Amino acid sequence: MSARDALQRLAAEQQRNRLLLVGAGASAAWLALAALFAALAPDDGAEGGSTLIWLTGLVLPLALIWLAVWSARSLSLLREEAQELRALLENMQDQADGGDGGMARPVAPPQPEARIPRPTPAPPRPAPAPAARPSGDGRQASLQLDSPAATELTAPELFFALNFPDGPDDREAIRCLRLALADPGLARLIRAAQDVVTLLAGQGVYMDELRIPETDPMLWRRFAEGARGDAVAGLAVIEDENALETAGQMLRGDEVFRDVAHHFLRHFDRLLSRKAQDENPQVLAVLTETRSGRAFTLLAQATGMLGRGSMAATT
């Protein structure tokens, strides 16, 4: 199951849970109104058939409320199944065409390269960033200047922002990236992630080519809460020795990359710690499947933060 599918499933489950809460609230409100009406209604002494009418008037709205809730939940399940079927058919079609879902993406890492300055300086500061980018693609400046006041991003929005747009037509990812750049903390993280991804791509290490097996979400929560080394060794799942060796060599021999990498690791770690307080652990695992998250896993493994690295970074 892909990261996007996991986010969509979480959102669908949350929506169905909200429907149950709405149904329970509407039922409680109706019962309260019925009790109030019974207390205020005059006692005319006519028992008999009026009791049956009363019970019918009490139960029928409740039945209608829960019929509506059941219908809405069934519709949500049908939509989810349709999306899964559509994704399965697309995957089967890709395999029938002989294409690999990840082969078309190695061109994606250069995308951040068009939106960031030359990777020679240390981690860019928020203030000088607009002045350092006129010679590149002007779209990055528009993403910053046109952004509204910072708002809390949802899990899917944060996923798209950390994964970077696949191109100028990826409008949803561009919208989420605008929202993220309006937050100073997220803006620093994303710029550092773009620098790291671009520098690694320059050495032939592409995030889309890294195979990262599914990991235990609770391990990511443990990591976000401060666990390091062997306690979270199950997160060191990258087996691409070339990528690990290249990252280790860059950390040892390239001072600029080492500074940018430590800056990026620090900000991504803070993001995980903040999200661990109020998000489902599955969200943490999904965020680490983005291009930024893959870079974080690679560098964390290379530096020994996950217990299996070579302690490549030296200061």
Rank of each mutant, 00 (worst) to 15 (best):
Gln95Asp: 09
Ala285Gly: 14
Met250Ala: 10
Ala132Met: 14
Ser76Gly: 10
Gln144Arg: 14
Met305Cys: 04
Ala127Pro: 06
Arg115Pro: 01
Ala12Gln: 11
Ala46Gln: 13
Thr297Phe: 01
Arg79Asp: 14
Met103Tyr: 08
Arg252Lys: 10
Phe164Thr: 06
Cys176Asp: 11
Pro165Thr: 11
Thr314Gln: 12
Phe257His: 06
Ala87Trp: 04
Leu58Thr: 03
Ala300Val: 01
Pro109Arg: 02
Leu75Glu: 13
Gln93Arg: 15
Ala34Trp: 09
Leu52Asp: 07
Asp100Arg: 14
Ala192Met: 00
Leu251Ala: 05
Gln93Ala: 14
Leu64Arg: 07
Ser135Ala: 12
Arg86Met: 00
Arg73Trp: 07
Thr154Ser: 15
Ser71Pro: 00
Leu20Gly: 00
Arg125Ile: 03
Ala41Asp: 08
Glu113Ile: 00
Leu88Phe: 01
Asp278Tyr: 02
Ala28Asn: 05
Met305His: 13
Met250Asn: 07
Leu272Glu: 09
Arg270Val: 01
Asn280Val: 07
Ser147Arg: 12
Arg139Ile: 01
Glu255Pro: 04
Ala6Asp: 04
Ala114Arg: 14
Asp43Asn: 13
Ala132His: 04
Pro123Glu: 04
Arg4Cys: 04
Pro134Leu: 11
Ala26Ser: 14
Ala108Trp: 05
Glu172Arg: 15
Ile53Pro: 05
Asp216Ala: 11
Ala173Pro: 03
Gln111Ser: 08
Arg73Gly: 00
Leu77Gln: 12
Gly98Cys: 11
His262Asn: 11
Arg115Val: 04
Leu58Gln: 00
Ala224Glu: 10
Arg294Val: 10
Gly253Ile: 03
Leu200Pro: 09
Arg16Lys: 13
Gly99Val: 05
Leu62Lys: 08
Leu200Asp: 02
Ala122Phe: 10
Val237Ser: 15
Arg294Glu: 09
Arg18Lys: 08
Pro124Cys: 09
Ala285Asn: 15
Ser135Thr: 06
Pro165Phe: 13
Phe159Arg: 11
Gly229His: 05
Gly229Arg: 02
Leu36Arg: 12
Leu21Ile: 11
Ala26Lys: 01
Ala87Leu: 11
Arg188Leu: 12
Met311Lys: 12
Ala149Asn: 04
Arg16His: 01
Thr215Tyr: 00
Leu284Asp: 08
Leu272Gly: 07
Asp259Tyr: 04
Asn17Trp: 00
Leu31Trp: 13
Pro112Ile: 02
Arg79Lys: 13
Pro165Ile: 05
Leu67Tyr: 12
Ala155Asp: 14
Gly304Arg: 03
Glu113Tyr: 08
Ala312His: 03
Leu60Ala: 15
Ala193Met: 04
Ala187His: 11
Leu189Gly: 02
Cys176Met: 07
Ser147Trp: 01
Ile53Arg: 15
Asp216Phe: 00
Leu58Pro: 02
Ala131Thr: 09
Lys275Pro: 02
Glu90Lys: 12
Glu245Ser: 12
Phe264Val: 05
Leu306His: 02
Asp230Ala: 14
Ala26Thr: 07
Ala247Gly: 07
Gly293Leu: 05
Arg86Ala: 11
His263Arg: 09
Ala24Met: 13
Ser292Ile: 00
Phe159Trp: 13
Asn91Ala: 15
Ala180Met: 07
Glu157Arg: 10
Phe268Gly: 03
Leu52Asn: 07
Pro126Phe: 07
Val232Cys: 02
Met218Arg: 12
Leu19Met: 09
Pro112Val: 03
Pro106Thr: 10
Val107Thr: 06
Arg16Trp: 08
Leu177Lys: 03
